[in-house]
């Protein structure tokens, strides 16, 4: 269904042009749609999937579990993101992917992705670009975890999520969003304790930077929040140019 790949097409068109043939090729490569309940895994560390998954609806995370039971979330994926495009080539999953909220994903059998790489070089480069964007985001997260304060780090994550959602038409800096992520999950994402995340969120509320009620989040002062985060969207590569 065309609407299931719509977020991906929006994400690609923000950076380049998707021809009608390429759009048709993506649709033709799509396999069955699968739904996952919140809290379940889409794919687990050690699995050798024969298909990659594109998020059509919902929020997912990539994560690693450590021996002492702690968890580090290494990525948050939104609609339009391939959660495991790389499993096409790396074969064995070195991390798991879990559903933060109820999710709907489009599967892409690896044999169909191979066909795309053989017949559609420009579309292949755009898919390659999607994995490069994932690694650009990872770099930014490493910088944040290594060098930013809890307030700066959380501000940066919120600026990023709002920006990424606006790219796929699911959000706006001036409108409230549903973020299905609790304080423990935020802590696992930022490498901070739950209590520290809670204290930092309260500081943001007290300083009238955001409101956060349940899962509803609104940014009250984008300029100030982006200033605290030193948010520079260059790493999201939002310019459309021939790739």
């Amino acid at each position: 269904m065309i609407e299931d790949i719509d977020a991906l097409v929006r994400k690609l068109e923000r950076r380049d042009t998707v021809s009608p043939e390429e759009r048709a090729a993506l649709l033709a490569a799509a396999g069955p749609m699968i739904t996952f309940a919140a809290g379940t895994d889409l794919v687990r560390e050690g699995d050798r999937p024969d298909r990659s998954m594109l998020v059509a609806q919902g929020f997912t995370t990539r994560y690693r579990l450590l021996g002492d039971g702690t968890r580090q979330i290494t990525a948050i994926h939104l609609p339009g993101d391939f959660v495991d495009l790389h499993s096409f080539l790396i074969r064995t999953m070195d991390h798991s992917v879990g559903a933060l909220s109820a999710c709907r994903v489009v599967t892409f059998p690896h044999t169909n992705l191979r066909m795309i790489t053989e017949r559609y070089p420009h579309l292949s480069r755009m898919l390659w670009l999607m994995t490069l964007l994932d690694s650009a985001i990872h770099r930014e997260w490493i910088v944040a975890m290594g060098r930013r304060s809890a307030l700066e780090q959380l501000a940066h994550l919120l600026c990023e999520i709002f920006t990424r959602l606006s790219v796929v038409g699911l959000g706006d800096r001036d409108r409230e969003l549903i973020l299905p992520i609790n304080q423990t999950e935020l802590g696992d994402t930022l490498g901070l304790s739950t209590v520290h995340v809670n204290r930092t969120l309260q500081q943001m509320r007290a300083e009238h930077l955001i409101t956060w009620q349940g899962q509803t989040v609104r940014i009250l002062d984008w300029q100030r929040l982006a200033g605290i985060a030193e948010f520079d969207e260059t790493y999201l590569h939002l310019d459309a140019e021939a790739r």
């Binding site: 304080q183 423990t184 739950t194 209590v195 809670n198 204290r199 309260q202 500081q203 007290a206």
Partner: peptide, 17 residues
């Protein structure tokens, strides 16, 4: 509930664990 007292003030935990 975990209330935090630090240089920026007192942060009363309204969520808890």
């Amino acid at each position: 509930y975990f209330d935090v007292h630090d240089k920026d003030g007192i942060f009363h935990d309204e969520v808890g664990l």
